[in-house]
Simulated scan of single mutants.
Amino acid sequence: MTFVWAIVAGLIIGVIARLILPGRQPIPIWLTILLGIVGGLIGNVIASALGVRVTGGFDWIRHILQVVVAAVLISLVAPAWGRRRV
């Protein structure tokens, strides 16, 4: 079940990251999910290092870090994906 939640969280994080980025990102949904999952994992590591991974209530800082990392990953991968030949 953890695998399913990772996919759902990756989708949500990836879609939010794509929404905050300007312009169009020519990447498929599976790559958005993958980058969202990776961004979520890296965001959790950063939040743990800052000591804000687990707080009382909703973990706003952790989730913001996850989305920001995913947005950076998407902004790095999208141009390369758009230039590739089919």
Rank of each mutant, 00 (worst) to 15 (best):
L31Q: 09
L35R: 00
I64G: 05
V38N: 03
L31Y: 00
T55S: 05
F58L: 13
L11D: 06
A70E: 11
R84M: 12
S48N: 12
G39D: 08
I12C: 09
I13N: 12
G10M: 02
I12R: 03
A71M: 07
L73R: 02
G57H: 02
V15P: 00
I64K: 02
Q25R: 10
T55F: 11
V69N: 07
A70H: 11
V86D: 14
A49Y: 01
V15T: 13
A78P: 04
V15M: 09
V52G: 09
V45Q: 10
G14M: 03
A70R: 08
I13H: 01
V67Q: 05
A6Q: 12
I42D: 03
L50H: 03
L65A: 12
I42L: 14
I46L: 13
G14T: 07
V38C: 05
I13W: 00
V15E: 09
L73C: 08
G82W: 11
L31W: 00
L65V: 01
V69R: 10
G40I: 00
V69G: 06
T55C: 08
A9R: 12
I13V: 15
N44G: 14
L34Q: 03
T55L: 14
P28D: 13
R24W: 13
L31R: 07
R84Y: 09
R62E: 05
G39K: 01
A78G: 03
H63S: 04
D59P: 15
R83T: 05
G51D: 09
I37A: 12
I33G: 01
A80V: 10
G39N: 05
I42K: 01
L34S: 14
V68T: 05
I33R: 04
R18S: 15
I27N: 01
A9T: 13
I20E: 07
P26H: 11
G51F: 10
R62I: 03
L76H: 03
L41N: 09
A78T: 11
R24F: 12
Q25S: 11
S75T: 13
I33Q: 04
I74M: 10
V86M: 06
L76Q: 06
L76Y: 08
I74A: 04
